[in-house]
Design a protein around this nucleic acid. Structure first.
Lengths: 211, 211
DNA sequence: CCGTTCTGTGAACACCGTTCATTTATTGCT
DNA sequence: AGCAATAAATGAACGGTGTTCACAGAACGG
């Protein structure tokens, strides 16, 4: 009897469809322009029907928030694969800034709207998407520390946090303070990288047959 | 005939009163909770009366935004007086973070709501409150450069911008990503300072009567 | 005292999120 | 097949929002 199964699937599909349309609306006109009534109109249902699939507007926002965060994480993933830590940090910087500037409304939704939205990302201390991706960043600084390229006496986790704050600051100032025309985000990003990474020490263990 | 004069003054006073009450509401319940109707109720006028003094809600928001920015600038001023540049930067960091965390709703209004709000701050390239206070920050890095304590080959203005982004990132992540529990803002601030400031070079021109 | 100008307002418009009784469609069972 | 039960969908309403505008009232200049 695959009938309840089919109904469940259809229900899930509709839910997915609603989220997809909502995402489009947010990306096109911003989160504030996402109204339950217009969303209902767009998916061709009555407004009340949306409440059969989501508790309220905030529930939709939360879902879009965690999905947006996953997109951000995915955008970082290729850069995170790079072995050499300085290059990795540089590439991750590029990817982060690129995502934030190319998908401003998504970025706003994730990190700049309501504090309650991003709570879901960090509720599990170790598990959730938030800590997991922050871990990737911490690992860069651990590798940098191992290579002797971090300021001494500062824990990698703290450096990672400052670095993240720097990235977020660059993106969000570009998004909100559009009036302030400073250097391009990429330039600022590279400045941030070179500021947090110490110059390479003279090779104690030479790479190959030197000295 | 001081009659039109008095009327003007009363008009200005009412306008001021409205802004004051609006500011209180924002600081207490956040910008989203500021409604024209509740504001009208609070100042004991009909909603329509507000539109005799402000074009619309956004106009009030803009005004609160620039005033909030001036408060922030004022909070930074004592620290900006410090002569020694490293100490100055450290004190300014402390002041900036303190303001952002103690007046979260004001800070949100200035830098995290609508991009159109902060436009007023940076519309004049050299004059307005925005460029002026950014200039204070640039000066710190100019002084640091003169003392040979900045990374070489990076313009002070760019370092200042990265530094500001860092501060803003720290504050706004604390405000929006409350779920993420990292190090205290002050610690991150000091890490940011020590990351952007190079260690003191050995004294070429010794302080007094040596050599 | 009258006419004008400024101040203030009530009522309306068009939205918004959300709820709930009611209708409609679908399913399982006899 | 028809009927009861369950699920899906909705129309209408409630209370809220920003904003406009024709109108009333007060204050003023002559």
């Amino acid at each position: 009897m695959g009938i309840t199964e089919r109904k469940e699937r259809q229900r899930a599909e509709l839910r997915e469809h609603i989220l997809q349309v909502a995402r489009d609306m947010v990306m096109k006109e911003g989160f504030d322009a996402l109204s339950m009534r217009k969303l209902a109109e767009a998916v061709e249902y009555a407004p009340a029907t949306l409440y059969l699939h989501f508790e309220n507007r905030d529930a939709i926002a939360r879902e879009l928030c965690v999905r947006g965060f996953q997109e951000l994480f995915a955008a970082l993933e290729p850069a995170a694969r790079v072995v050499e830590p300085v290059e990795r940090l540089s590439r991750m910087t590029e990817a982060y800034l690129g995502f934030g500037l190319k998908q401003p409304e998504t970025y706003r939704l994730i990190f700049m709207e309501d504090a309650r939205l991003s709570e879901a990302l960090f509720q599990d201390a170790k598990q959730g998407a938030g800590p997991q991706s922050f871990g990737v960043l911490v690992r860069v600084f651990e590798d940098l520390e191992a290579a002797g390229r971090t300021p001494e006496g500062t824990a990698p986790a703290r450096l990672a946090e400052v670095f993240w704050a720097g990235l977020h600051g660059i993106v969000s100032l570009k998004l909100t303070c559009s009036g302030f025309q400073g250097a391009p985000a990429e330039v600022l990003g590279q400045t941030l990288v070179t500021s947090l990474v110490r110059p390479a020490p003279p090779p104690a263990k030479p790479a190959r047959r030197s000295r």
